[in-house]
Amino acid sequence: MNKIAAKLPSAGQDSFVRKYLMRWEAILFLILIIVNVFNAIISPYYNFTGILGATRDFMDKTFIVFPMAMVILIGEIDISVAATVALSSVMMGVTYNAGNGVPMVVAILIGIGTATLCGFINGLVLTKFKELSPMIVTLATQTMYRGLAYVILEDQAAGSFPGWFQYFGWGSIGPVPFILICFVVCAVIFTLIINKTKFGRRIYAIGNNREASRFSGIKVEKTRLIIYTLVGFMAGITAIFLTSRMSSTRPNIALMYELDIISMVVLGGISTSGGKGRISGAIISIFIVGLLKYGLGLVNISSQVLMIIIGLLLVISVMTPNVAGKFKEARRQRMLHDKLSIQQK
């Protein structure tokens, strides 16, 4: 009895450490603090107002991080997001400039509609032809969507949007940029969906074991279709903010966004093999990547260095658990061996 009682608190402590301190999110949070301290050291101009303003520059793509997290949670990938943003933005620009006095609101709706349709097409192809790999399908649609943007706008730009449209990219409520507020709202909604709803539970289930999920009565294909469509929809939202910030659009807009987005999700600890990871990690990593970029920009370090850093971060964050796992397994084997040899003696 005494023994058990003595054991209990330590077991509790152990689980507290495991539950909160050893989590990937805690490590990410630490990295975030380090990034901030680092930024503050290298640049005298790094302050809170600056950070708030900087969110304008990197927040637009982060709307796609949430549905992309869902895609990766079910063990798949969508590479076509950047092209979807471009096509949506181009559609918005072209519709507004069509010359018949089309109101901007209609242009925005068409932009969002286009993006949603793009996502829906991805989902439709993937669910009707289950044999196809998401990577190859979205590679193909990426070429298609970006190609369509070029067909529509060639090497032109479309712009001269009404003044109020700038508000999305540049407006603020008090000191807080409008885009940051929208981001926070989305973050709350998606966190709730992923963590608390039946839909979220099913996403994790599919990522963990697709076949068992099917045998448990989950409509896997329907869920996939919803997720891909949602990716498209959020890409439309991104297109609005991005187009507003740039105040004009071109077919090569949002180039390579998919990499940043996938990096943020994966760096956030969401496993590419599906079923594992938390949305909170992805949210922290959004700020890590964004603030790192801002800080380096302050001291005139080129964006190319940042490209390298993000690429390395992506690869290393995926590799670390694997390599650590290998070490653990090797250690387990060694310990087992030692134990057995002791027994033999």
């Binding site: 990938i77 990499l259 690429g311 590799m319 390599v323």
Partner: peptide, 16 residues
């Protein structure tokens, strides 16, 4: 050796 999915590994290195 690293066990990184080819897609992710080469996507990252593409940037690098």
């Amino acid at each position: 050796k690293g066990g990184v999915l080819p897609l992710i590994a080469t996507l990252g290195m593409m940037n690098v």
